[in-house]
């Protein structure tokens, strides 16, 4: 079981309150992603759950048991660090076996589990190397291997992929998702990359300045963001926002429309604009369109083979049904 509950948990460093009191429930088997801008307290929140930081107030429960005073070694959680944090003086085999050695499992069982983890993670031929002799991706796999052998209640990941190159990151992302499907163990994953959040999560927790802005499934957040912050944070490229007359016309302080919900053409639409820079990704092209009347530059998604050029005059047609409206406090009007 891996049911984790935070009740009224807060954290201050000296006098600075980094996380104001918050409540959060993570259900057994869920893949939860903490996402938010740098410095918003994602790592701190994860470390509070791990027990690596003391909680200033409130309590943490695992499977209904209060673990607030329980040291990290006894919380039966496993963690994968951004820096991998492998033991440099031990071979890969010993690194992976370390949690088992601490749990005093017998030698035969230890090596059985290490072998099987190494097999799953394609590490078998590297078992006798030192971490220093491995590539970044291999080190990350060792760190994951060290986490899975112990069969913990939950896995905690703190930006585990941010030191890897883009291609490897996509690979490892899939491997971790795969792992979650096969283990069905609770996973809490910290990232500031909203693509990682969207692609991996069952549930996303959006944080800003230590405050939970919204909790929900990726599509819930995408379709029904609670406020401007979540709307702008989720989705890539970012949602377009308009204020002033155009927003007033829709009875809102700010309106938002995603790039994929605007059609761009030479002759059809209500907003006039001029094509600026375009980004060709192959399947899609993103146009940055300057609209003088709206006083804004909008990002618009179009097909990959759309022939529009820099400086062309175009018309934009927003799908009004997908338009999102926000009040003066930034909350979405439903």
């Amino acid at each position: 079981m891996g049911l984790i509950t935070l009740k009224n948990v807060s954290k201050s460093f000296d006098d600075v309150e980094v996380i104001p009191p918050l409540d959060l429930e993570i259900r057994d088997g869920e893949f939860v992603v903490f996402v938010g801008p740098s410095g918003c307290g994602k790592s701190t929140l994860l470390r509070l759950i791990a027990g690596l930081e003391d909680i200033t107030s409130g309590r943490v429960e695992i499977d209904g048991v209060d673990v607030t005073e329980v040291p990290p070694a006894r919380r039966r959680l496993a963690m994968v660090f951004q820096s991998y944090a492998l033991y440099p003086h031990m071979s890969v085999r010993k690194n992976i076996a370390f949690p088992l050695r601490m749990a005093k499992l017998d030698k035969a069982e230890q090596s059985r589990r290490v072998e099987s983890a190494a097999h799953v993670l394609n590490l078998t031929e590297y078992l006798d190397r030192r971490p220093g002799q491995l590539s970044g991706g291999q080190r990350q796999r060792v760190a994951i291997g060290r986490a899975i052998v112990r069969e913990p209640e939950a896995f905690l990941f703190d930006e585990p992929l941010s030191n890897l190159d883009a291609a490897l990151r996509v690979n490892m992302r899939l491997e971790i998702s795969e792992l979650h499907q096969s283990l069905k163990t609770t996973m809490i994953y910290v990232t500031h990359d909203q693509v990682e959040a969207m692609t991996m999560a069952d549930k996303i927790v959006v944080l800003q300045a230590g405050v939970i802005e919204q909790v929900g499934s990726p599509l819930e957040l995408y379709h029904n963001p609670r406020n401007l912050f979540v709307a702008s944070f989720i989705g890539s490229p970012k949602m377009n926002f308009l204020r002033g007359d155009e927003a007033d016309r829709h009875g809102a302080h700010t309106i938002g429309i995603r790039p994929e919900h605007i059609r761009i053409s030479a002759n059809e639409g209500e907003w006039k604009g001029t094509v600026g820079v375009s980004e060709h990704l192959g399947a899609d092209t993103f146009f940055h369109v300057r609209c003088e009347e709206l006083g804004a530059t909008l990002t618009v998604r179009a097909d990959g083979d759309n022939p529009l050029q820099y400086g062309d005059s175009v018309l934009l047609a927003p799908e009004l049904a997908k338009l999102q409206r926000f009040d003066a406090d930034g909350l979405r009007i439903t």
Binding site: P72, A73, L77, S83, A85, L86, F98, P99, L156
Partner: peptide
């Protein structure tokens, strides 16, 4: 010595004594 590595040991179930004996001391030989 990066504190991450000691924290990893704690997460791996090492009590203070094991953390010092099996992780810190060997790294600081």
């Amino acid at each position: 010595i990066p504190v991450d590595i000691l924290e990893a040991a704690r997460m791996d179930g090492a009590e203070l004594r094991s953390e010092i004996l099996f992780v810190l001391v060997p790294m600081a030989v």
